[in-house]
Simulated assay, not measured.
Amino acid sequence: MNEEQVARLCAIAPKYGLTLAHDGLIITKINQQSTTFDTSKYMPDQFVDLLAKIIATQMKADLWQWQ
């Protein structure tokens, strides 16, 4: 990914219930959780798929911990 794509991804993410923060090509937060994903190592489609997997994993954990 390039910096323009990362900025666009961060801008559209809230539309899908996701908040992202970045510093250049590095995603620094996903839903207020600190991280360091170097997006330069991913194609845009690959990174979107990775985000979807992260969210799915969090949803599964929440489901099993639900009371």
Rank of each mutant, 00 (worst) to 15 (best):
T39W: 01
L51V: 05
T39F: 00
F47V: 08
A11W: 09
K60D: 09
M1K: 05
A61M: 08
T28A: 05
P44G: 00
K29V: 05
K53G: 15
L18Y: 11
F37T: 08
I55A: 07
M59W: 10
Y42V: 06
N31S: 12
T28E: 06
I26T: 11
N2G: 02
W64G: 15
M43F: 13
L18M: 12
A13T: 06
T36G: 10
L51H: 06
Q33Y: 12
G24P: 00
Q65H: 09
I30F: 03
V6T: 08
S40E: 09
Y16G: 11
A56L: 14
Q32M: 15
T35Q: 04
L50P: 00
W66Q: 14
T36P: 11
G24I: 03
L9M: 04
K60R: 09
P44S: 12
G24L: 09
R8K: 13
L9I: 05
L18D: 00
A61I: 10
T19S: 14
Q65P: 04
T28Y: 11
Q67S: 05
A11M: 08
Q32K: 13
D23W: 11
Q46G: 11
T35E: 12
K15R: 07
C10Y: 02
A61D: 14
D45I: 07
A52K: 15
L20K: 00
F37S: 08
W64H: 15
D23A: 14
D49I: 04
I54A: 10
F47T: 00
I27G: 02
I55L: 11
W66F: 15
I30R: 02
S34W: 10
D23F: 14
T28G: 01
V6Y: 03
I27L: 02
D38C: 03
Q46W: 12
A56K: 13
P44A: 04
T36F: 13
L9K: 01
Q67F: 07
T35I: 14
T36N: 15
M59V: 13
R8E: 01
W66M: 13
D49L: 04
S34F: 10
D45F: 11
A21V: 06
R8F: 06
T19M: 06
T39H: 01
C10D: 04
K53P: 12
Q65Y: 07
M59D: 07
M1C: 12
E4W: 02
T36M: 05
C10M: 06
I26W: 03
A56H: 13
P14Y: 06
P14Q: 02
K29M: 12
G17R: 10
K41G: 15
G24M: 02
K41A: 03
D38F: 08
S40P: 10
S40A: 07
W64K: 09
G24F: 00
P14H: 09
T57L: 05
